[in-house]
Computed example of a mutant assay.
Amino acid sequence: MKRPLLLLTGVLIFLIPVGKQAMNPHPGNTSSELFDKIRGIIEARLGGEEISCRAFYETTYPLRACYGWKGQTRDFISRFNREISSIATIGGWREDYAVCGSFFALKESPDRTFGVSIAPKVAHPDLESDDSLREFDLLVTLTVDQ
């Protein structure tokens, strides 16, 4: 029988299974592997070019990647949904202040989640003036839940 080990870190509480069966029940679905898989989709299949997130976010997060993308928001969403639909459920895209975002969960392991946000440069003067986005129309951000 697995016994949970309670680990307190600040205000966050994590339950970690201990014992013989503490192995990941879904090999290949760790947060890091999921991060690498989605990054590969954005880069290789959609043509996103990775750029530094430092200019856009005050805090660093180990499983966050930022991309410049040429094209329209709706085109990215359509292509991304097509690429991801076989492995993840799509939470539905929402728009707020011209930024679109959606959450996703892996079909075979729904506890593995990630989010994607898309900010068009023309709607945000701070993005318009950033050198790393000079060649691009959109800032696409991927964040994988740890």
Results as ranks from 00 to 15, higher is better:
2 K>V: 15
2 K>S: 15
3 R>H: 14
4 P>Q: 12
4 P>G: 10
5 L>P: 09
6 L>D: 04
6 L>Q: 09
6 L>G: 03
7 L>Y: 12
8 L>V: 15
8 L>S: 14
8 L>F: 15
10 G>Q: 15
10 G>F: 15
11 V>Q: 15
11 V>F: 14
12 L>K: 15
14 F>E: 13
15 L>I: 13
18 V>W: 02
19 G>V: 09
19 G>N: 12
20 K>C: 11
20 K>A: 13
22 A>W: 00
23 M>E: 12
23 M>N: 10
24 N>V: 08
26 H>T: 04
27 P>Q: 03
28 G>T: 03
28 G>H: 03
29 N>F: 01
31 S>N: 03
31 S>Y: 00
33 E>G: 09
34 L>G: 01
35 F>V: 01
35 F>S: 01
37 K>A: 02
37 K>Y: 01
37 K>P: 00
38 I>Q: 00
39 R>S: 08
42 I>W: 00
42 I>A: 00
43 E>T: 01
43 E>N: 00
44 A>N: 13
45 R>C: 04
47 G>E: 07
47 G>I: 05
48 G>Y: 00
48 G>F: 00
49 E>K: 00
50 E>S: 12
51 I>M: 07
51 I>V: 13
51 I>Y: 05
51 I>E: 05
52 S>W: 06
52 S>H: 06
53 C>W: 02
56 F>C: 12
57 Y>P: 05
58 E>W: 11
58 E>S: 14
60 T>D: 15
62 P>E: 07
63 L>I: 01
63 L>T: 02
64 R>K: 11
67 Y>I: 04
68 G>Y: 03
68 G>L: 04
69 W>Q: 14
70 K>N: 10
70 K>Q: 11
71 G>Y: 08
72 Q>F: 06
73 T>Y: 02
74 R>V: 00
79 R>S: 14
80 F>Y: 10
82 R>N: 15
82 R>C: 13
83 E>D: 13
83 E>M: 14
84 I>M: 10
85 S>F: 07
86 S>P: 11
87 I>A: 14
88 A>C: 10
88 A>P: 09
90 I>M: 15
91 G>A: 13
91 G>K: 13
91 G>V: 09
91 G>P: 14
93 W>E: 06
97 Y>V: 07
97 Y>E: 09
99 V>S: 07
102 S>F: 01
103 F>I: 09
104 F>K: 15
105 A>K: 14
106 L>M: 10
106 L>H: 05
108 E>L: 12
108 E>H: 12
109 S>L: 03
109 S>H: 04
110 P>W: 04
111 D>K: 02
112 R>F: 04
112 R>S: 10
113 T>G: 10
114 F>K: 03
114 F>Y: 08
115 G>T: 03
117 S>A: 06
117 S>G: 05
117 S>D: 05
117 S>N: 06
117 S>H: 02
118 I>M: 04
118 I>F: 03
120 P>V: 05
121 K>E: 12
121 K>M: 12
122 V>W: 05
123 A>Y: 01
125 P>C: 03
126 D>E: 13
127 L>E: 11
128 E>N: 07
128 E>F: 08
128 E>P: 02
129 S>F: 11
129 S>M: 13
130 D>Y: 04
130 D>S: 11
131 D>R: 11
132 S>C: 08
134 R>S: 14
137 D>I: 07
137 D>E: 08
138 L>P: 10
138 L>V: 07
139 L>V: 10
140 V>Y: 01
141 T>E: 05
144 V>L: 01
146 Q>W: 04
146 Q>P: 11
